[in-house]
């Protein structure tokens, strides 16, 4: 099955936001991470197209910006789906059956990690610990954590995402 891939150019609105972010963070000591966060928070990803803009503003090489963006798991250079579903893969969740949950979600959505559903609705990501280990297994949808999930709860959560579209 074909997965959704988005290589679109940056919209003028998004580009404007990026310029605003750069102006906001340019003078800060150690500005690169806060700036990348600001861009991703606002437009959902850090497209490679903006690396030259960042490098110029912070007096870094494009290679340095590329190196930082790709070092950190949190940053993505592709536009994600409208919702991001992260499955915790760490030990506590494994002790409570997260392997089965992971397999269930992958099958249900017909997705592997780092892929997006063809309707652009959900991007699937692994995550290593949400700090919710007292109530494993856990998943995170956008910025909300759900504990003690089972297949039934997953069905409900995914249905609510699709319903909200």
């Amino acid at each position: 099955m074909e997965k959704a891939v988005n290589n679109s150019v940056l919209s003028p609105e998004d580009l404007k936001i990026v310029h605003h972010c750069i102006a906001d963070y340019q003078g800060m000591p150690g500005a690169l991470l806060p700036l990348l966060h600001a861009i991703q928070d606002n437009i959902g990803y850090v497209p490679e197209l903006v690396f030259p803009l960042i490098s110029k503003a912070l007096s870094l090489s494009v290679a340095e910006v590329h190196g930082v963006v790709t070092f950190y798991h949190h940053f993505r250079t592709q536009k994600p789906g409208r919702h991001i579903l992260q499955i915790c893969r760490a030990e506590s969740c494994q002790a409570m059956g997260s392997d089965a949950i992971e397999a269930y979600i992958k099958k249900k959505l017909d997705l592997d990690f780092h892929e997006t559903t063809p309707d652009g609705e959900i991007t699937l990501e692994p995550i290593y610990c949400l700090g919710n280990c007292a109530c494993s297994p856990s998943v995170m949808i956008d910025e909300e954590v759900f504990g003690r999930v089972d297949s039934q709860k997953i069905d409900q959560l995914i249905a609510s995402l699709k319903g909200a579209a």
């Binding site: 991470l33 966060h37 950190y72 798991h73 949190h74 940053f75 995550i127």
Partner: peptide, 8 residues
């Protein structure tokens, strides 16, 4: 507060 970016 400075945010990390998911690197253990």
């Amino acid at each position: 507060v400075r945010r990390a970016a998911g690197a253990y």
